[in-house]
Nucleic acid binder design. Structure first.
Length: 603
RNA sequence: GGGGCGGUAGCUCAGUCGGUCAGAGCAGAGGACUCAUAAUCCUUGGGUCGUGGGUUCGAGCCCCACCCGCCCUACCA
């Protein structure tokens, strides 16, 4: 048994999440976490919404809402969506809690005490009307090199040259068109160069495991070459106050500094709510514990560089030495599991262009498991993957419904018709032994692949096993055994089939937990096979220290009843009625409907 | 501009150390069967492995150049 931290990327509360988001971090992390629990490991799965940063303020202005109300609104939507997908978080919280603030401030202070936070003066663009930092990307102007009128502050999209916002001719804010002011400002910088050697050693060690996806490890090592100090504070009035700068309300911690600390603060919050406030340490201080971080590729730098650098600084493990703070020596990531991007046809999902499929809409129309299946079978695991409605319908109908759903249905129908309960088996023939062995071997094959985060291959292997069981029924032809003399053989074949369906259901349960519960019931099982998360309203633990909530919704759950990753004998005599289909076949017309909907036409 | 990833059958993608690697699933075609949501099972896969060079006895797999797509480059997974 190993303690496994499943650290799942924190969705940003600037809108509802689309299916590309959950394809990147959500479903893969849940499949892995569910599997690891089944394999007997002690999993702690944490995440939450990431609610600070300039984009929130810009959007709040646009929507005419205070930032706090805006993040409350989208936090609620995201919580509903992720819980609806069945993502089995132990705690899904948020960054605007007093508890998170306290942990972030402690991390900051210890990093600073250890010498890894350096105060520097820089020139930054400020919005004169709001006094906020104007990030380079929010500034545009005329490119001094090619004369392109809409060059961004950080780069000209026309000639490709990297720019400094102060170089732009006629710079203006993309938010409101005003001319930014460039002025000197004080900020705390994380001294990444002083941590570079330790980071490099850690990455080399990680590379040696051979487990990281090659693009992630290579990218991470590469960005180490040009490492520079990075500002961990901002001129903004939305975020976590900077310790020591409480008298300057327009200085806050950089959103990414605090967001990654969420993995730690959520773990501590979880333990505290459990009533065992030190229990989180089993995942963070024990060097034997493992931690897996799930995200999209645009987040790699924050998880393979910034976050480990913060941890090393906290642990006092960089060039400047130092001592860990009260949280002790914290574990660095075992593995950074990054997905590529799911695209919508040929282009990226884009909320602003309306080229988007929201998780909530998808769940309402098709339910969680068809989406989970699609993401596992065709998701952006090692390269960008294109979602199309036609492909979704095809995979749903010809793989999920016709392959797996049909096997469940035909097996249960024959049992219901002939026995009404799972019959006891007579003597097994070779064909029976073979199919049972094939299914049992599936646990090794599928499990290894999930452990390596190869979900596409894993679910394909599980579906191959399903195909073997379908073949078994075709070969043994139980539906032809109508004579009384064949009754024992019929019972044997159907018993074996039921056993295989049950085992296939276990094999597929990390991917399709909702369907797993239905199949479990079809075979006369009692209760829930796979535990599900729930939404719970909780009280703020540090009401005086946070962003003003007194209570908020979290996703949590009780997962100790998770079944083991192994074949479990079916219960002879368990009642089996004529089943209703577990999966729904989709009419091909939904492709047209969805395309019309995307085009903004009434469906 | 710099860095990264990718371009393999109609579609979506596998191809670890260079030598049965030219593959899988789906779609299509033919056949069998009927328990099942017309589902299942069997048979059927000549695609210049983006382009042009190079290294090698031998290259999707290594090197060079080029074309195309995507991502990162201080705040959209």
């Amino acid at each position: 048994m190993t303690r496994v931290l499943s650290a799942v990327a924190w969705p940003y509360t600037n809108g509802p999440r689309h299916i590309g988001h959950v394809a990147g971090f959500g479903v893969p992390s849940d499949v892995f976490s569910r599997f690891m629990r089944m394999a007997g490991h002690d999993v702690l799965m944490v995440s939450g919404t990431d609610e600070h940063g300039t984009p929130i303020l810009v959007l709040a202005d646009n929507e005419g809402l205070p930032a706090r109300e805006l993040v409350d609104k989208y936090n609620q939507v995201i919580v509903d969506d992720l819980c609806g997908l069945g993502l089995s978080y132990d705690l899904f919280t948020r960054t605007t809690t007093g508890y998170h603030y306290a942990v972030v401030q402690e991390m900051f202070e210890t990093c600073r005490r250890n010498g890894y936070m350096v105060e520097e003066t820089t020139k930054t663009a400020i919005s004169p009307s709001t006094g906020r930092t104007l990030p380079d990307r929010y500034i545009e102007g005329t490119c001094p090199i090619c004369g392109y009128k809409e060059a961004r502050g950080d780069q000209c999209d026309n000639c490709g040259n990297q720019l400094d916002p102060t170089d732009l001719i006629d710079p203006r804010s993309k938010i409101n068109g005003e001319t930014p002011e460039f002025k000197d400002t004080q900020h705390w910088f994380l001294d990444l160069p002083a941590l570079a050697e330790a980071l490099g050693e850690w990455l080399d060690q990680r590379e040696a495991t051979g487990l990281w996806r090659p693009n992630v490890i290579k990218f991470s090592q590469n960005i180490l070459k040009e490492i520079r100090p990075r500002a961990m504070t901002r001129d903004i009035d939305w975020g976590i106050p900077v310790p020591g700068w409480e008298d300057q309300p327009t200085k806050r911690l950089y959103v990414w500094f605090d967001a990654v600390i969420g993995y730690l603060s959520a773990s501590i919050e979880w333990a505290r709510r459990l009533g065992e406030p030190e229990k989180w340490r089993e995942w963070w201080n024990d060097a034997e514990a493992e931690s897996y971080y799930f995200m999209g590729k645009d987040n790699i730098v924050f998880h393979s560089q910034i976050w480990p650098a913060e941890l090393l600084a906290y642990n006092g493990k960089g060039d400047k030495g130092g001592e860990p703070g009260p949280y002790g020596t914290l574990n660095l990531p075992t593995e950074v599991v990054s997905s590529e991007f799911l695209t919508f046809g040929d282009s990226q999902f884009s909320t602003s262009r309306g080229n988007v499929i929201y998780v909530g809409d998808f769940l309402a129309r098709y339910g969680p498991d068809p989406l989970r299946y699609y993401i596992c079978a065709a998701g952006p695991e090692t390269s960008d993957a294109a979602f199309t409605w036609a492909d979704f319908v095809t995979r749903n109908n010809s793989e999920l419904v016709a392959g797996w759903g049909n096997l469940v249905n035909r097996t249960a129908t024959m049992i219901a018709k002939n026995f009404g309960e799972i019959p006891a088996a007579g003597p097994l023939e070779e064909v029976d032994e073979q199919v049972l062995a094939t299914v049992r071997d599936g646990f090794t094959g599928v499990g290894d692949l999930i452990g390596k985060h190869r979900l596409r291959a894993a679910i394909a292997e599980a579906m191959r096993v399903v195909g073997e069981v379908n073949k078994y029924l075709t070969v043994t032809e139980p539906y032809k055994m109508k004579d009384e003399s064949q009754r024992e053989r019929l019972a044997t074949v159907l018993h074996v089939a039921a056993q295989c369906v049950s085992d296939c259901n276990t094999l597929l349960s990390p991917f399709l937990p909702h369907a797993a519960n239905k199949v479990h019931a079809v075979l006369g099982g009692e209760g829930e096979l796979m535990p599900m998360p729930r939404i719970e309203q909780v009280d703020e633990l540090e009401p005086d220290n946070g962003a003003g909530h007194t209570s908020y919704a979290v996703i949590t759950g009780e997962y100790t009843s998770t079944p083991a990753w192994e074949s479990r004998p079916v219960v002879v005599g368990a009642r089996v009625d004529k089943p209703t289909p577990v999966f729904t076949k989709l009419d091909p017309s939904v492709v047209e409907e969805e395309l019309a909907r995307a085009a903004g036409e009434p469906a």
